[in-house]
């Protein structure tokens, strides 16, 4: 524990990185525990559909549509 504290307090940069890393880890654990949906930027309407995590399918549908 002392060693971790010493490492974190070595410089302002290590302290920032350590704090932010701990914060992100806790946010992710909380997200998993609360089963928060890993939402993506989706945009849907009857004329257009876009899913940022599936660019390949969007490309292939666009080519097929030509």
């Amino acid at each position: 524990m002392e060693r971790i504290k010493e490492l974190l307090l070595r410089s302002r940069h290590t302290l920032l990185l350590g704090t932010v890393a701990a914060y992100i880890v806790l946010v992710v654990i909380e997200g998993i525990a609360m089963d928060r949906d890993s939402k993506v930027f989706t945009f849907e309407n009857q004329y257009f559909e876009f899913n940022a995590t599936n660019i390949e399918e969007f490309e292939s549908r666009r080519v097929r549509g030509r």
């Binding site: 992100i24 992710v28 909380e30 997200g31 928060r36 890993s38 939402k39 995590t53």
Partner: peptide, 21 residues
């Protein structure tokens, strides 16, 4: 930057959802 890196590297948006909450 963290929002972007999380989405780009891990393909997840826990930080974004946390913000949205």
């Amino acid at each position: 930057l963290l929002l972007f890196l999380e989405d780009f590297i891990f393909d997840s948006q826990f930080l974004g959802n946390w913000l949205q909450s």
